[in-house]
Protein backbone atom coordinates (compact mmCIF):
# COMPACT_ATOMS: atom_id res chain seq x y z
CA UNK A 1 0.00 0.00 0.00
CA UNK A 2 1.11 3.52 -0.67
CA UNK A 3 1.48 5.97 2.14
CA UNK A 4 -0.55 9.18 2.14
CA UNK A 5 0.52 10.68 5.44
CA UNK A 6 3.65 9.99 7.39
CA UNK A 7 3.96 12.01 10.58
CA UNK A 8 6.96 11.58 12.85
CA UNK A 9 7.67 13.00 16.30
CA UNK A 10 5.33 15.96 16.02
CA UNK A 11 5.46 18.45 18.88
CA UNK A 12 3.55 21.67 19.38
CA UNK A 13 3.18 24.14 22.24
CA UNK A 14 1.05 27.22 22.68
CA UNK A 15 3.18 29.39 24.92
CA UNK A 16 4.00 27.27 27.96
CA UNK A 17 1.36 24.65 27.24
CA UNK A 18 2.49 21.56 25.37
CA UNK A 19 -0.50 20.44 23.35
CA UNK A 20 1.17 17.75 21.24
CA UNK A 21 4.06 15.67 22.48
CA UNK A 22 6.11 13.58 20.12
CA UNK A 23 3.31 12.06 18.07
CA UNK A 24 3.87 9.70 15.14
CA UNK A 25 1.41 7.91 12.88
CA UNK A 26 0.73 7.21 9.25
CA UNK A 27 -2.24 6.91 6.94
CA UNK A 28 -2.24 4.66 3.88
CA UNK A 29 -3.99 5.58 0.66
CA UNK A 30 -7.66 4.65 0.67
CA UNK A 31 -7.67 4.25 4.42
CA UNK A 32 -9.96 5.86 6.99
CA UNK A 33 -8.36 6.86 10.27
CA UNK A 34 -10.46 7.93 13.21
CA UNK A 35 -8.98 10.06 15.94
CA UNK A 36 -10.73 10.00 19.28
CA UNK A 37 -10.01 11.42 22.69
CA UNK A 38 -11.23 13.93 25.25
CA UNK A 39 -11.40 17.67 24.59
CA UNK A 40 -8.04 19.39 24.75
CA UNK A 41 -6.12 16.22 23.89
CA UNK A 42 -4.57 17.86 20.82
CA UNK A 43 -6.65 16.13 18.11
CA UNK A 44 -7.80 19.31 16.38
CA UNK A 45 -4.40 20.95 16.65
CA UNK A 46 -2.89 17.96 14.92
CA UNK A 47 -5.32 18.24 11.99
CA UNK A 48 -4.71 21.97 11.87
CA UNK A 49 -0.96 21.41 11.61
CA UNK A 50 -1.33 18.94 8.75
CA UNK A 51 -3.71 21.30 6.93
CA UNK A 52 -1.32 24.22 7.61
CA UNK A 53 -3.59 26.32 9.80
CA UNK A 54 -0.99 25.97 12.55
CA UNK A 55 2.78 25.57 12.46
CA UNK A 56 4.57 22.60 13.93
CA UNK A 57 7.33 23.22 16.46
CA UNK A 58 9.18 20.00 15.76
CA UNK A 59 8.74 16.85 13.71
CA UNK A 60 8.59 15.60 10.14
CA UNK A 61 5.55 15.38 7.91
CA UNK A 62 5.34 13.82 4.48
CA UNK A 63 2.15 14.06 2.44
CA UNK A 64 1.82 11.86 -0.62
CA UNK A 65 5.61 11.57 -0.93
CA UNK A 66 6.30 15.28 -0.47
CA UNK A 67 7.81 16.66 2.72
CA UNK A 68 6.09 19.69 4.25
CA UNK A 69 8.41 20.03 7.23
CA UNK A 70 11.34 18.12 8.55
CA UNK A 71 12.91 18.02 11.97
CA UNK A 72 16.27 19.79 11.88
CA UNK A 73 18.08 20.20 15.18
CA UNK A 74 14.92 19.96 17.24
CA UNK A 75 12.91 22.36 15.08
CA UNK A 76 10.44 21.81 12.27
CA UNK A 77 11.90 23.28 9.10
CA UNK A 78 9.25 24.02 6.49
CA UNK A 79 9.75 23.60 2.78
CA UNK A 80 8.12 26.83 1.67
CA UNK A 81 8.04 25.81 -1.97
CA UNK A 82 5.98 22.73 -1.11
CA UNK A 83 3.45 24.44 1.17
CA UNK A 84 0.98 25.45 -1.47
CA UNK A 85 1.26 22.24 -3.48
CA UNK A 86 0.72 20.11 -0.38
CA UNK A 87 -2.10 22.39 0.75
CA UNK A 88 -3.98 21.51 -2.41
CA UNK A 89 -3.66 17.81 -1.62
CA UNK A 90 -5.30 18.20 1.77
CA UNK A 91 -8.88 19.24 2.43
CA UNK A 92 -10.49 20.12 5.75
CA UNK A 93 -14.10 20.06 6.87
CA UNK A 94 -14.76 22.24 9.91
CA UNK A 95 -17.02 21.71 12.88
CA UNK A 96 -18.69 25.07 12.21
CA UNK A 97 -18.92 24.58 8.40
CA UNK A 98 -17.46 28.03 7.64
CA UNK A 99 -19.33 28.44 4.39
CA UNK A 100 -19.06 31.84 2.73
CA UNK A 101 -22.40 33.46 3.60
CA UNK A 102 -22.38 35.97 0.74
CA UNK A 103 -22.00 33.28 -1.93
CA UNK A 104 -24.75 30.99 -3.14
CA UNK A 105 -24.37 27.27 -2.45
CA UNK A 106 -23.20 26.74 -6.02
CA UNK A 107 -20.65 29.54 -5.83
CA UNK A 108 -19.33 28.22 -2.52
CA UNK A 109 -18.45 25.00 -4.34
CA UNK A 110 -17.21 26.75 -7.50
CA UNK A 111 -15.16 29.65 -6.16
CA UNK A 112 -11.90 27.86 -5.31
CA UNK A 113 -12.08 25.78 -8.47
CA UNK A 114 -12.17 28.99 -10.46
CA UNK A 115 -9.78 31.15 -8.42
CA UNK A 116 -7.28 28.55 -7.24
CA UNK A 117 -7.35 25.76 -9.83
CA UNK A 118 -8.23 28.18 -12.68
CA UNK A 119 -10.89 25.88 -14.04
CA UNK A 120 -13.28 27.28 -16.62
CA UNK A 121 -16.73 28.36 -15.49
CA UNK A 122 -18.35 25.44 -17.32
CA UNK A 123 -15.99 22.88 -15.85
CA UNK A 124 -16.29 24.28 -12.32
CA UNK A 125 -20.06 24.44 -12.51
CA UNK A 126 -20.33 20.93 -13.87
CA UNK A 127 -18.11 19.60 -11.11
CA UNK A 128 -19.98 21.57 -8.43
CA UNK A 129 -23.38 20.40 -9.63
CA UNK A 130 -22.19 16.78 -9.75
CA UNK A 131 -21.00 17.04 -6.14
CA UNK A 132 -24.17 18.76 -4.98
CA UNK A 133 -26.19 16.04 -6.67
CA UNK A 134 -24.14 13.46 -4.83
CA UNK A 135 -24.86 15.30 -1.56
CA UNK A 136 -28.57 15.40 -2.40
CA UNK A 137 -28.52 19.18 -2.65
CA UNK A 138 -29.00 19.76 -6.35
CA UNK A 139 -32.18 21.77 -5.73
CA UNK A 140 -30.39 24.01 -3.19
CA UNK A 141 -27.69 25.24 -5.59
CA UNK A 142 -29.13 28.76 -5.96
CA UNK A 143 -29.85 29.22 -2.27
CA UNK A 144 -27.69 30.93 0.32
CA UNK A 145 -26.14 29.14 3.29
CA UNK A 146 -28.45 30.79 5.85
CA UNK A 147 -31.42 29.18 4.11
CA UNK A 148 -30.11 25.67 4.76
CA UNK A 149 -30.20 23.41 7.81
CA UNK A 150 -26.94 22.68 9.64
CA UNK A 151 -26.73 19.25 8.05
CA UNK A 152 -27.22 20.69 4.58
CA UNK A 153 -24.60 23.36 5.26
CA UNK A 154 -22.14 20.72 6.34
CA UNK A 155 -22.83 18.71 3.18
CA UNK A 156 -22.15 21.83 1.11
CA UNK A 157 -18.87 22.31 2.95
CA UNK A 158 -17.92 18.69 2.18
CA UNK A 159 -18.75 19.30 -1.49
CA UNK A 160 -16.68 22.48 -1.38
CA UNK A 161 -13.67 20.55 -0.07
CA UNK A 162 -14.12 17.69 -2.56
CA UNK A 163 -14.37 20.11 -5.49
CA UNK A 164 -10.61 20.62 -5.37
CA UNK A 165 -9.98 16.87 -5.68
CA UNK A 166 -7.93 16.54 -2.48
CA UNK A 167 -5.84 13.43 -1.98
CA UNK A 168 -6.93 13.27 1.63
CA UNK A 169 -9.83 14.83 3.48
CA UNK A 170 -9.74 15.75 7.16
CA UNK A 171 -12.83 16.17 9.30
CA UNK A 172 -12.59 18.17 12.51
CA UNK A 173 -15.58 17.06 14.59
CA UNK A 174 -17.91 17.41 11.60
CA UNK A 175 -21.08 16.60 13.55
CA UNK A 176 -20.45 18.35 16.86
CA UNK A 177 -22.61 21.33 15.92
CA UNK A 178 -25.50 19.13 14.76
CA UNK A 179 -28.44 17.38 16.40
CA UNK A 180 -28.61 13.54 16.26
CA UNK A 181 -30.74 13.41 13.13
CA UNK A 182 -28.51 15.76 11.16
CA UNK A 183 -25.49 13.94 12.55
CA UNK A 184 -26.74 10.74 10.90
CA UNK A 185 -27.06 12.65 7.63
CA UNK A 186 -23.39 13.64 7.71
CA UNK A 187 -22.15 10.26 8.91
CA UNK A 188 -24.00 8.71 5.99
CA UNK A 189 -22.10 10.99 3.58
CA UNK A 190 -18.73 10.20 5.16
CA UNK A 191 -19.50 6.50 5.05
CA UNK A 192 -20.29 6.86 1.34
CA UNK A 193 -16.91 8.48 0.76
CA UNK A 194 -15.21 5.68 2.68
CA UNK A 195 -16.84 3.15 0.38
CA UNK A 196 -15.38 5.01 -2.58
CA UNK A 197 -11.96 4.60 -0.97
CA UNK A 198 -11.46 8.29 -0.25
CA UNK A 199 -8.53 8.70 2.13
CA UNK A 200 -9.82 10.36 5.27
CA UNK A 201 -8.96 11.20 8.86
CA UNK A 202 -11.89 11.97 11.14
CA UNK A 203 -11.80 13.54 14.58
CA UNK A 204 -15.08 12.46 16.13
CA UNK A 205 -17.00 11.66 19.28
CA UNK A 206 -19.31 9.25 17.44
CA UNK A 207 -17.85 5.98 18.66
CA UNK A 208 -20.14 3.52 16.87
CA UNK A 209 -19.61 5.37 13.63
CA UNK A 210 -15.84 5.52 14.12
CA UNK A 211 -15.73 1.82 14.83
CA UNK A 212 -17.83 1.02 11.77
CA UNK A 213 -15.88 2.96 9.15
CA UNK A 214 -12.29 2.96 10.41
CA UNK A 215 -9.39 1.02 9.01
CA UNK A 216 -7.28 2.42 11.80
CA UNK A 217 -7.88 4.43 14.94
CA UNK A 218 -5.88 6.38 17.48
CA UNK A 219 -6.85 7.43 20.94
CA UNK A 220 -5.20 10.65 22.15
CA UNK A 221 -5.00 12.11 25.59
CA UNK A 222 -2.99 15.07 26.89
CA UNK A 223 -1.08 15.45 23.64
CA UNK A 224 0.10 11.86 23.24
CA UNK A 225 -1.21 8.78 21.43
CA UNK A 226 -2.27 6.40 24.19
CA UNK A 227 -3.41 3.56 21.99
CA UNK A 228 -3.57 2.74 18.30
CA UNK A 229 -5.54 0.26 16.16
CA UNK A 230 -9.22 -0.48 15.66
CA UNK A 231 -9.08 -3.06 18.42
CA UNK A 232 -9.13 -0.16 20.88
CA UNK A 233 -12.88 0.14 20.34
CA UNK A 234 -13.76 -3.43 21.32
CA UNK A 235 -10.78 -4.52 23.32
CA UNK A 236 -8.78 -1.58 24.72
CA UNK A 237 -5.51 -2.52 26.36
CA UNK A 238 -4.92 0.79 28.15
CA UNK A 239 -6.83 1.74 31.28
CA UNK A 240 -7.16 5.37 30.07
CA UNK A 241 -8.80 4.21 26.83
CA UNK A 242 -11.21 1.98 28.74
CA UNK A 243 -12.12 4.88 30.99
CA UNK A 244 -12.74 7.21 28.06
CA UNK A 245 -14.83 4.69 26.12
CA UNK A 246 -16.91 3.80 29.15
CA UNK A 247 -18.11 7.40 29.28
CA UNK A 248 -19.85 6.72 25.95
CA UNK A 249 -21.63 3.58 27.10
CA UNK A 250 -25.36 3.77 26.67
CA UNK A 251 -24.69 6.30 23.93
CA UNK A 252 -25.83 5.51 20.47
Amino acid sequence: MERMIQLENLSKSFGETEVIRNISFSIEKGEVLSIIGPSGSGKSTMLRIITQLERADDGTLTVDGETLFRSVGGKAEYDRSAERRIGLKTGLVFQSFNLFPHFSVLRNVMEAQRAVLKRSREEAEEKAMALLRKMGLEDRARMYPYQLSGGQQQRVSIARALALDPQILFFDEPTSALDPELTREILHVIRGLAEEKMTMAVVTHEMHFAKAISDNAIFMDKGVIVEEGTSLFSDPTEERTRQFLSSFEGDD
Binding site: T51, L53, R84, F94, F100, A115
Partner: peptide, 12 residues
Amino acid sequence: RGQHEAAKVLGF
Protein backbone atom coordinates in the same frame (compact mmCIF):
# COMPACT_ATOMS: atom_id res chain seq x y z
CA ARG B 1 -11.94 33.52 12.17
CA GLY B 2 -13.37 30.46 10.41
CA GLN B 3 -13.84 32.51 7.26
CA HIS B 4 -10.10 33.17 7.05
CA GLU B 5 -9.33 29.55 7.87
CA ALA B 6 -11.71 28.14 5.26
CA ALA B 7 -10.22 30.48 2.67
CA LYS B 8 -6.69 29.43 3.63
CA VAL B 9 -7.47 25.71 3.46
CA LEU B 10 -9.10 26.15 0.04
CA GLY B 11 -5.91 27.75 -1.23
CA PHE B 12 -7.08 31.32 -1.84
